[in-house]
Design a protein around this nucleic acid. Structure first.
Length: 783
DNA sequence: GTGCCTGCTCACGGG
DNA sequence: GAGCAGGCAC
């Protein structure tokens, strides 16, 4: 494709952006203004017109889905050479660099990537080991602080320095240090480390940085408004030498402040790069005039944004609709009914629709109604596939084979499925590992040297390590999927699932296992050089949204966050209520102003997803965490001038809220739906406007449901009798001194002959009298 | 050693 | 409403 062809497909501003190949460039790309089009054509221009070598281009996106889309569109334009371009997410690019240079930083190239669940497990272990009072510190909170520290490039050392005398900060600092120590010992990095360690690599080894600066002479960053300080620093380092940095973003769509996104990166780009060229893309090709006007009306209430106004040549289209309902059920039913009707009348396909909401918890009602009306849908988000227990277990086997010093993976699977290696044995192995500076796995291999472990327990440990050894030997010859299948078969994992779950759950989980095997096969076919660590890496970096494909004729259900970058002919935005959206957390937050502006940007993102028809929905009352709450209509709805909204009849609803005027809101601080602020008395917590205390709804009703759900099943009796140990005889009598693993030595005070076993009462000097069943207590007579 | 029950806590968004 | 730690029963 030559220059003329490329330019002919673009408008004036787009063409200018494509032609600006050298120097810093900021493209302010409004929603639906064709920014992917610009990026793709810019790459084509660099290669086809300027003769740039494809391997010297690095294009960074935030999701794999965006990267894949860009890759395939570039391939359409320039052909197979496109494979040489690095089009990938921040995290993937960093992993690729780190695998090559991990040794320099004290890791091996087989390092494991920890997701947030993994990080939480590590932190819980640390809390236990350091006996941290969980009333004063919370694991998640500490992790959040560590994460923000990493996003701001604050090392444990510097954290400790700046903590000063503040007790809390000092403690967090020491937890941060310990956390990093454990990750390094496990040859593991968390998501933030992937960025941070790459920066560390570049800063400590200027020659390595130089290598990549020379390689990536042309840098492009998509969704630039969502970069955090660390990511910005990474880009700056790479761009320092040749300064060919093109960033594309929209400050109005910055919605990831909570995970460290620094909106100043885009707002101050021209200060940081004074010679930067700025190009604005303000023509929208996606939405109707009415939808765009509504979006503009909402977003103009934000301060501190770059001035811009989207416009379109598209038709005005239908008015934006606003519907109110008695409750969340009616809201969901309305959308389901409309969708089903217009599809059955042949006016639309399921894939034309998306339902967007603020929180994942809101999806349930829609799922119910969609199932009830047989509407095919796909739920994006919620519990990530790779976060499911069975998937994490099986992957932990692969991780152990790949990186045996990953203590977290080892402790996850050492007794899953059950092989009789319980907490007691594990504690002994852990102590041995700790004393000798060994990994858990190495300690387990040397189980014979641990004197307190009985021969039978040691045998069980050996059969585990033997199994891993065999897998490791075969890993060289076997494909990833064959290795995975072997793990599933030889551990008896499926039998465990069938035995411990009810039929429906078991079939779900077995399906997930099949799905994982499929993913492994898919990975092998799609990669020229498939490796075990390559597969684990791909799996670690995948996001739920990545699985959404245009092929399925399904309604999409997802959060507003997940919807960024997507577009649909018809969009429903649910839960347009004060307290839901904007959420009460932002209304009540310390910097409510900034928090609500971020919510407003989220609303803007939602509105601009719609091409032809947008429906805003609100319910008068809804169940929030088991409590019935009432919320007024969202301020965002009120920010759209009345005459722009069509608030016609809502067939599913009998009573409708009248549309409130656009006057100022009442006191925002009134929201405290969780009841926390009221010192535990839930009735006082529900202080919604005009609130009536609907006490009594939570307690009794909920627990009676739980009871009936857990009614004993007929097979319960069978299970227990099968698993019970035999009674046998005792090696000690009343008055004897005995030893217990946890409580130490004590004196037997009483032995009672129960039907199946002896009940033994023992006096311990430090613990008082404890009662055990002999078969389980494993008491040993002290001679 | 393990499974089950209970009470407690937490609770927005996600790579 | 859900997930989890801790206690209890077998």
């Amino acid at each position: 494709m030559d220059e003329k062809q490329i330019i002919s497909r673009l408008n004036t501003e787009q063409a200018e952006a494509v032609r600006t190949a050298e120097g810093p460039l900021l493209i302010l790309a409004g929603a639906g203004s064709g920014k992917t089009r610009v990026l793709v054509h810019r790459i084509s221009y660099l290669i086809n017109v300027l003769g740039v070598w494809p391997g010297s281009i690095l294009a960074i996106t935030f999701t794999n889905k965006a990267a894949d889309e860009m890759k395939s569109r570039v391939e359409d334009l320039i052909g197979p050479d496109s494979g040489k371009i690095w089009v990938m997410t921040f995290h993937a690019a960093c992993v690729r660099i780190l695998r090559r240079h991990a040794e320099e930083l004290g890791y091996t190239r087989y390092f494991t990537i920890y997701d947030s669940d993994d990080s939480l497990s590590v932190m819980k272990d640390i809390f236990k080991a350091k006996r941290i009072d969980t009333k004063r510190f919370r694991e998640k909170q500490v992790l959040a602080l560590i994460s923000s520290a990493k996003n701001e490039l604050v090392s444990p050392d510097r954290y400790a320095e700046t903590a000063g005398k503040d007790f809390y900060s000092r403690e967090v600092g020491s937890l941060y240090e310990e956390y990093q120590k454990r990750l390094l010992a496990s040859n593991a990095m968390d998501f933030d480390d992937l960025i941070g360690k790459t920066i560390e690599l570049f800063k400590r080894f200027p020659d390595i940085l130089g290598l990549y600066q020379d390689k990536f002479r042309y840098l492009m960053v998509d969704e630039y408004q969502d970069t955090n300080t660390a990511q910005f620093s990474l880009i700056s380092l790479l761009a320092e030498k040749y300064r060919n940095l093109c960033v594309v973003g929209d400050d109005d769509q910055s919605i990831y402040r909570f995970r460290g996104a620094n909106i100043r990166n885009i707002l101050n780009f021209e200060q940081i790069f004074p010679d930067a060229k700025v190009i604005r893309l303000e023509q929208n090709y996606r939405s109707t005039g009415n939808i765009l006007e509504a979006a503009n009306a909402v977003i103009r209430n934000n301060r501190g944004r770059k001035d811009k106004k989207l416009w379109t040549e598209n038709e005005e289209g239908a008015q934006v609709r606003f519907r109110t309902f008695e409750n969340g059920y009616e809201e969901a039913d309305f959308a389901a009914d409309e969708i089903r009707r217009s599809v059955s009348e042949g006016k639309a396909s399921y894939r034309d629709y998306a339902v967007l909401y603020r929180t994942n918890a809101q999806s349930r009602l829609f799922e119910e109604k969609f199932i009830f009306r047989s509407i095919p849908y796909k739920l994006v988000g919620g519990v990530n596939f790779y976060a499911r227990k069975e998937i994490k277990d099986l992957l932990a086997y692969l991780k152990t084979v790949n990186n045996a010093v990953d203590d977290l993976a080892v402790s996850r699977i050492v007794n899953v499925p059950k092989r009789g290696i319980g907490q007691t044995t594990m504690t002994k192995i852990q102590n041995f590992a700790y004393d000798g500076g060994l990994s858990l796995y190495d300690a387990a291999v040397r189980v014979g040297e641990i004197s307190q472990i009985s021969a039978s327990a040691a045998g069980k440990v050996r059969s585990f390590t033997g199994f891993i050894e065999r897998l490791r030997e075969e890993a060289g010859q076997l494909s990833v999927s064959s290795l995975l299948k072997k793990v599933v078969e030889e551990t008896g994992y499926k039998d465990m699932v069938k035995a411990q779950d009810d039929e429906e759950t078991a079939s779900d989980r077995l399906g997930n296992i099949e799905e994982l095997v499929n993913k492994a096969v898919q990975y092998e076919t799609q990669n020229e050089n498939p490796t075990l660590s390559g597969f684990l890496e791909e799996v670690a970096l995948i996001a739920d949204i990545d699985s959404v494909s245009d092929g399925d004729d399904k309604v999409l259900l997802m959060t507003l966050h997940a919807a960024k970058g997507l577009e649909f002919p018809k969009v429903y935005m649910a839960g347009m209520e004060e307290g839901i959206f904007p959420g009460y957390m932002s209304i009540n937050s310390e910097d409510a102003l900034a928090a609500i502006e971020e919510e407003r940007r989220l609303c803007y993102v939602g509105i601009t997803r719609a091409e032809k028809l947008l429906t805003l929905m609100a319910a008068r009352e809804r169940m929030v965490r088991g409590n019935l709450e009432r919320f007024p209509v969202s301020r965002f709805v009120r920010e759209i001038p009345r005459e722009m909204l069509e608030s016609g009849k809502a067939p599913a609803s009998r009573t409708r809220l009248s549309l409130p005027g656009s006057g100022p809101l009442g006191p925002a601080k009134a929201f405290a739906p969780s009841g926390k602020a009221a010192g535990g008395n839930a009735a006082f917590g529900r202080s919604f406007p005009g609130g009536r205390a609907s006490g009594g709804l939570s307690g009794g009703g909920v627990s009676s449901v739980r009871k009936s759900a857990n009614a004993p099943k007929p097979e319960a009796a069978k299970k227990t009798s099968a698993g019970a140990p035999s009674k046998g005889t005792l090696s000690y009598a009343v008055g004897d001194q005995v030893n217990h693993v946890k409580f130490g030595n004590g004196v037997v005070r009483e032995i009672v002959d129960r039907k199946k076993d002896f009940e033994v009462a023992v006096d311990f000097p430090a613990w008082g009298t404890k009662r055990f069943l002999a078969a389980y207590a494993n008491l040993k007579k002290v001679e």
